[in-house]
C-alpha cells in the first residue's frame, strides 16, 4: 500500500525469520532514499530487523510502539 510516497508493509502475525525476509523483499521494490514503514506484533523482530537492516546500510528513521505488542518501524532505503 502506498501512502503519500511512503510505502507501508503490514507484517502483523509474521514471526522470525519471515519478518526480516519479507521486509527485505519489500525494500527491493522501494527506491533508494524512499521510506518503508513496517508494522510488527512480534517483539524479537522489533529488535532484530532494524539492527540487521542497519547492518546492511539502510537507515532506521524511527521505532515506535503503537499499541500492546504493536510496533511501527520507519526505514529509509540506502
Amino acid at each position: 500500500m502506498v501512502n503519500n510516497m511512503t510505502i507501508e508493509l503490514d507484517l502483523k502475525g509474521e514471526v522470525c525469520p519471515y519478518t526480516f525476509v519479507k521486509t527485505k523483499l519489500k525494500l527491493e521494490e522501494v527506491e533508494s532514499g524512499e521510506e518503508l514503514v513496517v508494522f510488527f506484533d512480534h517483539a524479537p523482530a522489533v529488535e532484530n530487523v532494524p539492527r540487521s537492516l542497519k547492518n546492511e546500510g539502510h537507515k532506521i528513521m524511527g521505532i515506535e510502539q503503537t499499541g500492546d505488542r504493536l510496533w511501527k518501524v520507519r526505514i529509509k532505503k540506502a
Partner: peptide, 18 residues
C-alpha cells in the same frame, strides 16, 4: 521467547540473520 529463556548479559539475542 518461545522457551521463556531470560536475557543474559553479554549474549546477543539475535536472529537467523546473525
Amino acid at each position: 521467547e518461545q522457551r521463556r529463556v531470560a536475557k543474559v548479559d553479554g549474549i546477543l539475542f539475535g536472529s537467523q540473520y546473525d
